[in-house]
Simulated assay, not measured.
Amino acid sequence: MPLLRLSLILFLALAASSAHSREYRYSDAHLHYVDFFQESAGMDKLLKRMAEANIEHVMLSGIPVAKKWDENEPKRPRYYAGDDANAYWYSATDVLIAHAFKQLPVEQRRRFHPFLSGFNPTDMNADAHIRRMLEMDPGLWQGIGEVFTRHDDLTALIHGDAPRADNEALARVYHLAAEYDLPVMLHANITSKRERNPLYLAEMEAPLRNHPHVRFIWAHAGTSLEIHRHQDKLDFLLSTLERMLEAYPNLYIDLSWSMLRPYLLDEQGTPDPHWIALVSRYPERFMLGSDVVGHFDSMGELMRGFEPFLDALPTEAAHGVARDNFLAILPRKAEETPAK
């Protein structure tokens, strides 16, 4: 073990010595164009922030639910957790995404990769709805997600059954994703706010095992800011990911902003050598995302926050995580002429 630790320290030192010459170009693999009220700062603002932050590509998705402003609430909420009012599945979010995409000049469309998200993941008709959307705009949609399954307090605010990544309705969606060669991004919490064990892990493993031809992106690696508020750091997360990445070649990890601390960087901003080792072992299976929600001013700060971690990776791996890995999992047809 001391030898391994020494090797990791030397590896980090060598990586840091060459990091000053790196300039990263980014793909934001986790971006919501609208917020929980289906509102957006707009494409002009998004393009401006992308240019400022050297972000060349973005995953463009909506929010699959809308937060209700209940007549009993004294003021309009600002976030889904702002009050006790419910949220409800909102299919029109994809209409908003398609409209925003179609307003772009053709030469800009190659930078945007729309994902379908506006469906109820407990509805056995969800796959039929998704198929209609795909047929209405051939070639526009390049992925499915972010699909909300276990999602902190939001799960309890939505009427109906708690959505699970392994339910039968989503199994039908996964078959459709395989048919159209679409990656699927899942928000599936690995545990609850209180349980210090991988309570819901089986729900994520089942689709990975049962649908080997589907490329799954696990949003935040099953974590969330709300879990961190209650549990700080999940001590089982790293070993769980080590096992799963080896067992499931169709698993990809979204290292969006809530993963930065307490996992990738410590309180002093130093990269965690064990996470560096994991990403270096599977350099094509990780990607970055800002997870901004309808407003884009923080994009650059969030993406640049990963630079100390990227600098500690081998150069090729760092550029893959920053930009190329997300592009590599998109359907092959995405490289063709952008949808009109």
Results as ranks from 00 to 15, higher is better:
Pro271Glu: 07
Thr93His: 05
Tyr80Arg: 04
Leu278Asp: 11
Asp44Pro: 15
Asp254Trp: 02
His213Cys: 11
Ser298Lys: 14
Ile253Met: 08
Tyr248Ser: 07
Leu245Val: 04
Ser18Ile: 14
Ser258Asn: 12
Met136Trp: 06
Met43Cys: 12
Asp94Cys: 11
Asp297Lys: 15
Ala339Val: 09
Arg243Gln: 04
Phe101Arg: 01
Ala177Thr: 12
Glu73Ala: 15
Glu316Asn: 13
Ala221Asn: 07
Leu278His: 10
Arg25Phe: 09
Leu31Ser: 06
Arg172Phe: 02
Ala87Tyr: 00
Leu310Ala: 01
Ile144Gln: 01
Asn210Glu: 08
Lys340Gly: 14
Arg281His: 15
Arg332Cys: 10
Thr155Lys: 11
Leu288Lys: 06
Asp291Trp: 03
Gly118Cys: 04
Arg109Ala: 02
Met204Phe: 07
Leu255Tyr: 00
Glu336His: 15
His175Tyr: 13
Ala171Ser: 07
Val173His: 02
Ala328Gln: 09
Glu107Cys: 14
Ser280Thr: 14
Arg78Glu: 15
Ser17Asn: 08
Ala15Thr: 08
Asp83Leu: 00
Leu310Gln: 01
Leu238Ala: 12
Met43Gln: 14
Tyr248Asn: 03
Arg78His: 11
Asp28Pro: 07
Leu10Ala: 10
Pro163Val: 08
Val58Ala: 04
Thr122Ala: 08
Arg281Glu: 13
Leu237Thr: 02
Ala85Gly: 13
Ile55Phe: 03
His220Pro: 07
Asp28Phe: 06
Ala334Leu: 05
Ile97Thr: 11
Ala19Gly: 06
His213Asp: 15
Asn120Leu: 02
Arg243Lys: 07
Ile227Gln: 01
Asn54Ser: 14
Leu330Lys: 00
Ile190Val: 13
Arg332Gln: 15
Leu237Gln: 04
Glu335Gly: 15
Phe286Tyr: 06
Val65Asp: 02
Glu301Asp: 13
Ser117Met: 06
Met244Arg: 08
Ser91Asn: 12
Val106Gly: 14
Ser239Met: 03
Asp137Trp: 07
Thr337Ile: 14
Gly320Pro: 03
Arg25Glu: 15
Asp254Leu: 01
Phe112Thr: 11
